Amino acid sequence: MTAVTESNGAAVRTEAPFGTEVLAVRGCEPLTAADVPRSVLHDPAEPWSPTNCYTDVWIGLTAALGLDPVPMLGAAFSADFLGDQWEFLKPRQEDLEALYGLTVGEYDTWRPLGEHLQLAMSRGDALIVEVDAFHLPDTEGVSYRIEHTKTSIVPLRLDPLAGELVYLHNDGVHVLRGEDLENTLGPGARDGRVPYPYVELVRLSGLKRLPPRELWQHTIELVRGHLRRAPDSGGAADGPAQRLVTSIREHLPELAERGMDYFHLYSFATTRQAGLTSGLAAHACRYLAAGAAQWPSDLDAEQLLEAAEAFDAAAGAAKTLQFQLARAARGRTPRVDTSAEAFVAGHTAGMHAVREALGLGE
């Protein structure tokens, strides 16, 4: 798409990759980066906020739409250790549709990305887009103009004439301008780390706002489904928490050999994912407990609060374990036994208590 301007009396055609109209996700039209609602899950006091880029944009998007993101966290209870990494936590598409009426699916980017962005936002829909963090100013000091790495964002409001995009990334809402905008979502993206990004379309046409009690009841059934598919957490050698720490112990010599660059990659895939999953599981437990205290049900609110405390302990232990892995990567001798055992104990106790609270105990 192009725009025509005049320069010294001659017609000049210039690219307008985002068109000329102000566009926004439905319900986000008046929002600025300063007034987008923020979830408690993105409180700076949270030990694992930001979480991971995909879960973060869903936390941010649901909060921006005036929805409670906590009910969508059921997938935290079915996360597993996959041998070389803890499962990357993502809200499940079927959960998002059941709770909020939001439908999500892969979106084929067969045209320039800017055109797809215009079309989706003109309908009020949202796109979750993989981009190169090298061009995201909110990653200053980490990736911005330093390192090319993939991450996910959600554009909320686009003003092409002002050259500004309000977008969600990590635990905040930010503004992208000028050259950074061109290189992230415009023609310049074709020359970057993510020339053909993976994109998901979030359709808002079916958006629903369930009454609090009905939302809570839906959440109970979704959590039960996740608990039924969850791996064994009985504390035996085949439980996910135990398998993680066993793998970490075996990996300590390689960390010492390969240093800090390797540590950052390794810890993101292991202790970080395990810690944030545990922390979000704790929030889900407290949400279920609050409902059980308010409305009649067969849930045990006290056991749910015990589960939340256990998951919080696991999240904290994973943070300590991550610090100790950094010591190993610097060539020091880490003492990981206490934190490793605390993570296993917390995660195992949390899973046991939430199963019991929801009537799924053995």
Rank of each mutant, 00 (worst) to 15 (best):
L222P: 02
Y167P: 03
D138G: 11
A353W: 05
L31R: 04
D298V: 06
A237M: 13
D84H: 08
E29F: 06
E29T: 06
D138S: 15
Q85C: 08
R335S: 13
A76L: 06
D43G: 12
A236N: 11
M351E: 09
A126L: 02
L82Q: 10
L358V: 08
L227M: 05
T62Q: 07
H226K: 14
Y262P: 02
A307T: 09
R332P: 06
E221L: 15
V223N: 01
G239V: 09
E306I: 09
L215S: 04
K90L: 15
T184W: 04
L82D: 06
H148D: 11
G206H: 01
Y144K: 13
D238N: 12
A317L: 08
V12L: 12
R157Y: 04
L321Q: 05
E164M: 12
L168C: 07
L360M: 09
S78M: 08
G279F: 11
A11T: 15
V202F: 00
Q273K: 13
D298N: 08
F343M: 01
F263L: 11
D95Y: 01
A230G: 03
S78N: 04
G192E: 06
A237T: 12
I128Q: 07
F88Y: 15
E200S: 00
G239R: 03
N183D: 14
D337P: 04
G27D: 05
L244Y: 03
A162S: 10
E115T: 13
A63R: 01
L252D: 00
E94N: 05
D84C: 10
T14D: 13
S7G: 00
I146Q: 14
L65R: 00
P37D: 11
L185T: 10
S122I: 05
L136Q: 05
A353Q: 09
A256S: 15
T109Q: 11
P17T: 04
D35R: 02
V194Y: 01
R228Y: 07
L227D: 01
F263I: 09
A329M: 13
A340D: 01
A133H: 08
S49P: 13
M121R: 00
E250T: 14
G291Y: 00
A292C: 14
R123K: 13
F263V: 08
L158T: 01
T338D: 14
P44H: 03
D159V: 03
E302Q: 14
L227C: 02
R13W: 04
A241R: 07
A313V: 04
E87K: 07
D68S: 07
G192K: 02
A292N: 05
T149E: 14
E130R: 03
Q217G: 08
L113T: 00
L358N: 09
R228I: 13
T320A: 15
F323N: 13
N52W: 07
H42Q: 12
V4I: 13
P296C: 10
S297Q: 10
A318E: 03
G186E: 05
G316Y: 04
A3P: 01
R123T: 04
G225N: 02
H347A: 15
E106T: 14
H174G: 03
P37C: 07
A315D: 12
E356R: 15
G235S: 05
